[in-house]
Design a protein around this nucleic acid. Structure first.
Ligand SMILES: NC(=O)c1ccc[n+]([C@@H]2O[C@H](COP(=O)([O-])OP(=O)(O)OC[C@H]3O[C@@H](n4cnc5c(N)ncnc54)[C@H](O)[C@@H]3O)[C@@H](O)[C@H]2O)c1
Ligand SMILES: NC(=O)c1ccc[n+]([C@@H]2O[C@H](COP(=O)([O-])OP(=O)(O)OC[C@H]3O[C@@H](n4cnc5c(N)ncnc54)[C@H](O)[C@@H]3O)[C@@H](O)[C@H]2O)c1
Lengths: 206, 206
DNA sequence: TTGTTTTTGTGCAATCAAACACAAGCGCGG
DNA sequence: CCGCGCTTGTGTTTGATTGCACAAAAACAA
């Protein structure tokens, strides 16, 4: 089974499968089927089978998929069978919520740096991590070889902060600011904007 | 131009267009083109034109689109040319961050109710909104006719809370808990799970 | 062993989405 | 008023994604 450019849309579903599998494992389950997974996720069984078959033959006919094994395989594919250090920029309400959140570690991430430019925030501690001056950000990120960042600064300064992050070697940015960012090829951005998600649903309301 | 079932994927892009247009308007811009919008958003100009043309002829050849007019049209399409009342369930870190956030109002939403089941949270005030007992939730939502909710409770209780929300008449749920929810037809759910977004990007890292 | 049930992996067909390409409309300068 | 440059809206083509359907493998019972 060769690595021949898997569609982005398939990669995008893997974390969803993973989340559901983790939940089943917590419930003590041993095996599942494409049908069961599909019903839980609202995705057709055929699609799940086809997605997984892109990476190997993980199931067994007549039985289904071993949950622990499949979980491990998907973790390997997504490279979350390790823990990525994450830098958070912006020690406001959102920065505070993500820094305090305990759910990242077992999904492949650990927040180890928080930066801000407000003197009243710098030096305070969030979940045992000291908020550092943004002036030191580039050096710190580079020194620690951090590749993943979460951006929780106001929209107006998001692009300038991103430029620094990119320059410092960040390759993946999760952006909470409600603006589209411009980054060079090779840097990935994902957006979280609750208003966008809500606006997506109001179209369908009466 | 008749309303003949617009693809979900087109609806999903409209809030993105809207966000970018709003930003241009703030910068005092009057007109834009599908090309400019496309470059900002990393979407082809043709696609933007085709998306918009599904709803009417909003542009002018040789000139482009009047930003204010197009903004208004998209707001109408998405039904965010009004303000939807939103109920937040879960007065924790995330609930606190969204309740405090001032950016919803001008995008079509206002948080007017917050519910929790923790006696130490009930009665406290978030951004002028008193946290109410979840026991009163069903009645309050029904009485106020609220259709939109944000779910910021722990994953383990998310489904049971959703069942109450649905029963109370909620039609659109923005779920922050890292679990897939089961809802009847006619109720929409959107998911925000930062770990999923991050896992989506690590696949592409070296 | 044999038959029955279950469920995978996948070739093929159908559907859906994106890109291309261009006629036609608009504004403007001369 | 004419011609040129720009940009829309859209018919058509190309490409991507999903759904269908079934052979083959496994498990299990008799
Ligand atoms: N709170 C929410 O629920 C919510 C919802 C949607 C979007 N957002 C977006 O998320 C972002 C953060 O929201 P928030 O509520 O945490 O805001 P906030 O104002 O509480 O926090 C922003 C933080 O960024 C810091 N900051 C400002 N400029 C900076 C700079 N140049 N360098 C480093 N740090 C800087 C500020 O000092 C502050 O600590 C904003 O873009 C906001 O629009 C938030
Ligand atoms: N904090 C983050 O950045 C973050 C990141 C990813 C996901 N999440 C998810 O978002 C959700 C909320 O996270 P948080 O950090 O705000 O957690 P939190 O523990 O701070 O808040 C949860 C709140 O829900 C309330 N609650 C619990 N059971 C309830 C019930 N049955 N009815 C009503 N209220 C109830 C609790 O009293 C608490 O106030 C969780 O599902 C979490 O996994 C949070």
């Amino acid at each position: 089974m060769v690595d021949k450019s898997i569609p982005d849309i398939v990669i995008g579903r893997l974390p969803i499968y993973l989340r559901s599998l983790t939940r089943m494992m917590e419930q003590g389950r041993q095996v599942t089927s494409s049908q069961e997974l599909g019903e839980r996720l609202g995705i057709s069984a055929a699609q799940i089978r086809k997605d997984l078959s892109q990476f190997g033959e993980f199931g067994k006919q007549g039985t289904g998929y071993n949950i622990e094994f499949l979980t491990r395989k998907i973790q390997e594919i997504l490279q979350v069978d390790r823990v990525w250090e994450v830098a958070v920029v912006g020690a406001g309400d959102v920065g505070h919520a993500v820094a305090n959140y305990g759910g990242f570690q077992h999904r492949g991430f650990r927040i180890t740096r928080i930066f801000d430019n407000d003197p009243s925030k710098i030096g305070t501690t969030f979940n045992n991590i000291k908020v550092m001056d943004i002036e030191r950000m580039s050096e710190e990120i580079r020194k620690a070889g951090i590749q993943v960042a979460m951006l929780t600064v106001p929209a107006g300064v998001a692009q300038e902060v991103v430029d620094i992050l990119v320059e410092a070697g960040i390759k993946a940015i999760l952006n909470y600011a409600p603006v589209n960012l411009s980054v060079p090829a090779g840097v990935r951005v994902q957006y979280i904007d609750p208003a966008v998600h809500l606006q997506n649903m109001t179209y369908y309301l009466d």
